[in-house]
Design a protein around this nucleic acid. Structure first.
Lengths: 251, 251
DNA sequence: TAGTGGTCTAGACCACAAT
DNA sequence: TTGTGGTCTAGACCACTAC
C-alpha cells in the first residue's frame, strides 16, 4: 500500500474496487480478487482487505459466498411506478396491485384496522391536532404469496366517521381515491417523499430481508382533496428489490 | 454476549443500538455508550464493538468524533421538490434555481457543452440509436457559492440541430421546457427515477462529500413531448443533505 | 494526563465450496 | 484436502478531546 495519509488503506482499497465495478471493468456476477491476492497487491494484512470488502458489501455492490469468493451483485428488478393516472376507474386501483399486475404476479394483502389518536408526526402530515382521532390500517402485501411491501395508513376520522368507507377494507370501493369519491371527497393531488434507511428487526422479519443488508425504501405518501390532506401512509419495501419511477405532467 | 448462533455478535450489538436510536430512546445528538462500556455490557473484544459502531456509521445513523464519543446524527434538511407546475413561465425555471430560491440561497451554476455520440444507456433513454449525435452538457450547481449538485444532460441533435437553442446555455430561454417551447416542441410530461449509491471519487471531490460516507442520490430525469423523449439527465446530489418530494395531480 | 475513537497487525477458528 | 470468506481475539499506535 503506498503511503496515503489522506485516506485509510481499507477505504482506498474499497474505492479502487468500487471504481472497477462502476466503470464496468468488473461486470455483474464477476468475481473479485481473493483476499490473499488483495493482501499481496496492496501490502496489507488480512483484516484490512476483509474490511474493504465489508464496505462494498454494506453498499450493496458485492456479495460474498463463503468458500467461493466475492461477486459483483446483480441489479434490482421490480419497478414501482407513481403517477396520477388510472387511479379512478378501471382495473386494480391500489398502486401495489397495479405494480404487481404489471409484473405478472398475483397480488394479495392482509390488513388490520383500528382507531387511534394521531401522534405528533402523523398530525403534522394530516394537518390536524395531535390526539385527534384517526383510523390506522396496517397492510402486508404479498406478491405470489411472498411478502414484498408493508404499509401503514392513517385517515382523519373527522372525514370518514359514520360513512360506509370508515374502515378502509370493509366497504365496496377499493383504493383511497375510489373510497373518497364514494363519500364525495374528490382527491385531486398526492405527494410522495421517498427516503432510504436500515430496516428494523420487525421489517427484516416481515419482508424476509437479509440481516446483512437490511436497507429499505420508505415512502411517505399523502393524498389531498382541494389542498386538504385526507390520507397519509408510510410504505416500506426492500430497497434492493425496488426501483422507483415518478411520471408527471408538465403544467 | 449471550450465545446467538443466528446472528454474529457485531450485528446483534448494532441492531440493539439501532433499535434504541429509531425508538427515540437515543435522540439526535445523544452520545452512545463508549466502546469499553459496550465491551463490558456484551462481553466481547474491542474489535467487535468497533465493528458494530462502523455498521451504524455506514448506515448514516451515527457519527464518531475522535477523542469524544459516538453521537446520533442530525437529520437532513434541504428539500428537492418535483412537480410539473411553474415550469413554463414566471420566476426561476430550472428546478435547481427554484429549490435554491425556496431555501433563500443564491443559485449559480457552471456548465460545459459538447457534441458527442450517444452511448448505449443514453440512447435507450432517448429512444434513439447508439452513436446518434447528442449534445451533452455538464453542470455544477452552487448554492451561496458552495457546490451542492452535479448534473449531466443529453439532448438528441435530431431535435435541436441548427436551432437557436442547440447549445442549452447560449440561447435566450432558460430551462428545458422554455427552450423547447421556443422551437415549437411542447414538453407535456417528465419522469424521474431516484436511486441511491456510493459516490465516485470525482463526486466526493466536487460535492465536498465526507469520504467516510459518500452516499449520493442519483435522479435519472427525462422530459417528453407527446411521448417522445427530448432530454434526459443524471442529477447527482449529497444523499445526506437532500430530501425528495414528488407532488402529482390525480387524473 | 486519561479517555476516546479510528486504524492496523498477526494470528485463530469455523462453515462452506471447489477439487 | 485446500482455499475461501466470515467472525473473533488480544493486543498496538495514533490523533484527538476533555479535564
Amino acid at each position: 500500500m503506498p503511503e496515503r495519509p489522506s485516506l485509510p488503506a481499507y477505504l482506498q482499497i474499497a474505492a479502487d474496487l468500487r471504481q472497477r465495478i462502476t466503470s464496468g471493468e468488473l461486470q455483474p456476477r464477476a468475481k473479485l480478487p481473493s483476499e490473499s491476492a488483495l493482501m499481496r497487491t496492496y501490502g496489507v494484512s488480512n483484516t484490512v482487505t476483509k474490511r474493504a470488502i465489508s464496505v462494498l458489501r454494506a453498499e450493496g455492490l458485492v456479495e460474498g459466498r463463503s468458500g467461493s469468493g466475492v461477486y459483483v451483485r446483480e441489479i434490482r428488478r421490480l419497478v414501482r411506478e407513481s403517477h396520477g393516472r388510472n387511479l379512478r376507474r378501471p382495473g386494480p386501483t391500489s398502486p401495489f396491485a397495479r405494480d404487481a399486475q404489471a409484473g405478472g404476479q398475483a397480488a394479495t394483502w392482509e390488513h388490520d384496522t383500528a382507531e387511534e389518536q394521531a401522534a405528533e408526526a402523523v398530525a403534522v402530515r394530516l394537518a390536524i391536532e395531535p390526539g385527534d382521532p384517526v383510523m390506522r390500517t396496517t397492510y402486508r402485501y404479498l406478491a405470489d404469496g411472498h411478502p414484498v411491501q408493508l404499509a401503514t395508513s392513517w385517515e382523519p376520522l373527522a372525514i370518514t366517521r359514520g360513512t360506509p368507507v370508515e374502515r378502509p377494507e370493509d366497504g365496496a370501493a377499493v383504493g383511497v381515491v375510489a373510497r373518497m369519491d364514494h363519500i364525495g371527497v374528490r382527491i385531486d393531488e398526492f405527494e410522495e417523499r421517498p427516503s432510504w434507511r436500515a430496516g428494523t428487526p420487525e421489517e427484516v422479519a416481515a419482508l424476509g430481508l437479509s440481516p446483512r443488508r437490511p436497507m429499505v425504501v420508505v415512502i411517505q405518501r399523502t393524498y389531498y382533496a382541494a389542498g386538504r390532506p385526507v390520507e397519509t401512509a408510510d410504505i416500506v419495501a426492500d430497497a434492493d428489490r425496488y426501483e422507483l419511477v415518478y411520471r408527471m405532467p408538465v403544467d
